[in-house]
Design a protein around this nucleic acid. Structure first.
Lengths: 167, 167
DNA sequence: ACAAACTTTCATTTATTTTTGAAAGTTTAA
DNA sequence: TTAAACTTTCAAAAATAAATGAAAGTTTGT
């Protein structure tokens, strides 16, 4: 396989994969493109490479910056803005899990807390509901904390030890 | 909040959350409904509760059974089929991660392997591409294994110890 | 302060995904 | 073997999500 072909394959596949994970295709593609670029890329170049409109590019770059995984860069003597992706994968994982936790897990916990604390009358049906949603609340909370700790400790000796034990 | 209201809120919210994670709304809603039902539910009842068509119900039940998180049940003397959800959350987590790994992570690894093993010519651009995709391959592989181990050991003492250390 | 060079926004269009429902298929009891 | 009672399939319709592009907004050098 040739370089251009490989690059294209990577970008396209990353886009498709992103969709499956609830991330829009263009956002994933732009991220993929920046990840494998060894130097900052201008908006024009992104538009050109991915064959997408200016508006789409702009919106998705903004979203990526909101997630904290893409940065703006300024080149001296250049009016245009350039973009780079966070390339440290541990850092990337931390930022993605923080963001998903904030956007998706926290709201889920809020709902679970609300519905699991209704006053359960004596019917078996209601008891089961409260029991099951309470368990779910505990479980999601535990999972969320675990993800937090894993990413947090990922780099240091304790994390490495844990990884070793787990393997 | 009253029981019916709480149940409805849970089912609706779970559906919305599912969408964000790339799981279709109805599939997530049916799963939610079955999770909090203390006894098997017929297709008719699911259709009625969620106000969805027979075809939709059938397809999504099939998908949930393919994931291994919903089971068919037969009641003696009843012609109809009934459905229940896996209610053990550890078991649920194991099945969901297995399935997502199989469907999404494994294919991603395949692509990463392919594109990271192209012959890098001497340009800095190509070297960076190979370097970055190789790192990504290693990282995703590591993460996939970790998820595997976490779910696998979740119930036993080692898992508990690790959780404790991490907290 | 101006205008050139750029970026962002958002109403509209387009593409994708999900849902419907009628027809086809299946199972079971008599 | 038949037909009633159910489930599944899939082409078409509906709903949802994403992309476009022109207009509005912003920044920067002179």
């Amino acid at each position: 396989m040739e370089f251009k072909e490989a690059k294209n394959k990577f970008v396209q596949s990353w886009g498709a994969l992103g969709s499956q994970w609830g991330i829009n295709k263009t956002m994933a593609q732009i991220h993929a493109l920046l990840m494998v670029s060894n130097e900052p890329v201008s908006m024009e170049d992104i538009m050109e490479e991915l064959q997408i409109s200016r508006g789409n590019t702009s919106m998705n770059l903004k979203a990526l910056m909101d997630w904290g995984i893409v940065y703006k860069e300024y080149k001296s003597g250049e009016r245009r803005e350039f973009f780079t992706a966070e390339k440290d994968l541990d850092e990337l994982a931390v930022k993605i899990s923080r963001e998903r936790s904030k956007r998706e897990i926290k709201p889920a916990l809020k709902i679970l807390k609300e519905v699991s604390t209704i006053e359960a009358k004596d019917s078996a049906e209601e008891k089961h509901f409260v029991d099951q949603t309470s368990k779910l609340y505990d479980f999601v909370l535990k999972a969320d904390n675990m993800l937090d700790k894993i990413t947090e400790f990922n780099e240091n000796w304790l994390g490495r030890l844990v990884l070793k034990i787990m393997k």
